[in-house]
Amino acid sequence: MDAARNRRSHGLIWIWTLFVALVIYLPVACGALAGLSKGRYFLFPIRAFSFEWWEKTLDSLEIQRIVQTSILIALIVTLVSLAIAFFGALAFARYDWRGRRLYQKLLLLPIFFPQPVLGLALLLWFNALGIQPSWHTAIVAHLVWIVPVVTLVIAIQVYGFDPAMEEAAADLGAGRWMILKDVTLPILWPGIWSGALFAFLLSWGNFPLSLYTAGADSTIPKWLYSKMVAGYTPMVPALGTMSTLAAATLLLLGGAIAGFVRKRRAN
C-alpha cells in the first residue's frame, strides 16, 4: 500500500520534472529549428530543412566581426573582473575592516539596478566625459555589473576558507607570495573558476548594457535584436543557436575541467 503510494508520487515527480524541463527547453529548440528552415521567413511548421542559413551565417564577414567583438569583450571582462573580484571577495568575506558592511551593501547595488537604466546612466556618463561609446566602453559597462556578481561567487568560496590555513603557512615559513600561490589560490580555485565562467557567459549574453554603451560596435545579442527589429533573416535564429551552443559547450568544458582537477587532487 505504502510502496504503491510511494511509487505513484515518484512517478508524479518525474512527470512534473519532465514537464518543467520541456517548458524551459522547448523555446530554445524552436529557435534552433527556425534556423534550420529553408525558407526566408519564419513559418511554423517548418516545410523544408536545410543548413543554408547556417552556412550563410558562418560565411558572413559582418557576423565574423561581431563574434570577434563579443569574444574579445567577454575575455577582457573575464580577466579584469577576476582580478578585481578576487581581491574584492577577500575584502568581502575574509578580512574584517572598518567600512566592510557598507562595502558589502554598495557592492550588491549594481546587481539589483535594472540593467537598461544602468546602461543609460553609463551612456550619459560617458557622454558627459566626452568619451565616444564603442566596444571599449561596453567593457566598462559590463564590468560595472559583472564584477559584483563574480565577487559574490568567489566570496562564497572565501567564506568556507579557514584563515588558519594562511596563518599555518606563514608559521611554517612561507612568504606572502608562496602563501598566495600554494595555499590561498589553490583552495579558492573552484570559486575563481566558476567566477570566470560566470563572467564570460554573463558578458557573452548581455544585451541591455551593450545596446546602450557599445556605440556603433555590435555584439551578438545586440545584432540579434537589431535584426529582429528590422531585416529578419533565419541567420538570426542560426546565430542565436550557435551562441547558445557555444555557451553550453564552454559550461560543459568548464565543468569537465573542474571535475578533472578535483579527481586528480583526490588521487
Binding site: 579557514d162 588558519a164 590555513m165 596563518e167 599555518a168 603557512a169 608559521d171 600554494d182 595555499v183 589553490p186 583552495i187 580555485w189 587532487r265
Partner: peptide, 11 residues
C-alpha cells in the same frame, strides 16, 4: 603552532 583545526592543506 599545531592549530586546533590542524589547518592541513586540503588540496
Amino acid at each position: 603552532l599545531v592549530f586546533q583545526s590542524l589547518a592541513l592543506f586540503p588540496h
